[in-house]
């Protein structure tokens, strides 16, 4: 039998355990866990839609309603500039939809990713699994919602007899930047909100403000030119949403002078977010 008195009060410093980071290993493990992400995503989509009466129809009805309420009030009461650049007569509802779709994806992805580790507490405290799975899965679920919400978007094109322009391929890099921003922010907020529960409350407020400081319901041209660059750095959605609109509706390249700095922000957020996530993830089970 061991005598407890022989054990020191604290471990010798050279014994302290340090986590080794390896991006390659993380990516490998993430790939291995893809099955799990699918299962969790399926679970979330199912619990959200299958048990409600209208089911998947909610995913289509909600954004449609938002677009019309938004469009109506901004156009009639806010008196925003509803004309696109000369020569393109894109209906205002399409312009709003172009901004609202990516913005709603972003705000719902961030909101649910931030809560992912808290709500899956019972799973991740008892099973070994990569914790990044949970926020990423939430982002994936929001992506699924966006695809559903894209169906009425397509129908609106038919309704207005308007063709998406051939510059639409710009959507791919724009969306990649948006995903980088979403993943970085989602990862960092998911662990931080376990330590500081206030974060989840704050997110709701920030997203509401963000909706109005992003050109969702109004065109970029409504923002004074001198504000555009600093705003783009702080809020990459300024050039992103403008870029989506130009690429899909106006047959233009995005404004690269604004998109460049915003892209830097997105990539920095992704890297910092990942590092913050890795560093704070270690103590999750201790405090959750």
């Amino acid at each position: 039998m061991l005598d407890p008195a022989t054990i020191p009060d604290r471990p010798p410093p050279e014994l302290l355990w340090h986590r080794k980071f390896s991006l390659i290993r993380d990516i490998k493990e993430f790939w291995r866990d893809r099955e799990l992400i699918r299962s969790l995503g399926e679970r979330d989509i199912r619990t959200r839609y299958v048990q409600s009466y209208l089911g998947l129809a909610w995913a289509i009805l909600t954004p449609l309603l938002t677009v019309f309420v938004f469009g109506y009030f901004f156009k009639k009461i806010g008196k925003v500039d509803t004309k696109g650049p000369p020569g393109y007569n894109a209906p205002y509802y399409l312009q709003i939809y172009c901004g609202l779709l990516p913005w709603q994806f972003f705000s719902s992805a961030i909101g649910s990713a931030a809560g992912a580790l808290i709500s899956n507490n019972s799973l991740l405290n008892k099973m070994k699994c990569g914790r990044e799975i949970f926020p990423i899965e939430q982002i994936g679920t929001s992506l699924f919602d966006m695809v559903l919400a894209g169906i009425p978007f397509g129908l609106l094109f038919v309704r207005y007899q308007y063709m998406p322009t051939s510059t639409i391929y710009w959507v791919i890099p724009l969306f990649a930047l948006q995903m980088a921003l979403t993943i970085g922010l989602g990862l960092a907020l998911s662990t931080l909100s376990v330590y500081f529960r206030d974060i989840r409350q704050v997110i709701g407020g920030i997203m509401t403000v963000g909706l109005f400081i992003s050109p969702v319901a109004y065109p970029l041209s409504s923002i004074p030119p001198s504000y555009r660059l600093p705003l783009s750095i702080v809020n990459p959605f300024v050039p992103l949403i403008d870029g989506y609109r130009r690429a899909i509706l106006f047959h233009q390249k995005p404004d690269l002078h604004l998109l460049g700095p915003a892209a830097v922000t997105c990539v920095v957020v992704m890297i910092v977010g990942y590092v913050v996530f890795r560093r704070t993830e270690i103590g999750i089970a201790d405090v959750a």
């Binding site: 010798p12 014994l15 355990w17 986590r19 405290n125 008892k126 099973m127 070994k128 201790d286």
Partner: peptide, 10 residues
Amino acid sequence: TGTMYPYAGT
């Protein structure tokens, strides 16, 4: 199980 990490040791 790997849900918690040690403070020291391996």
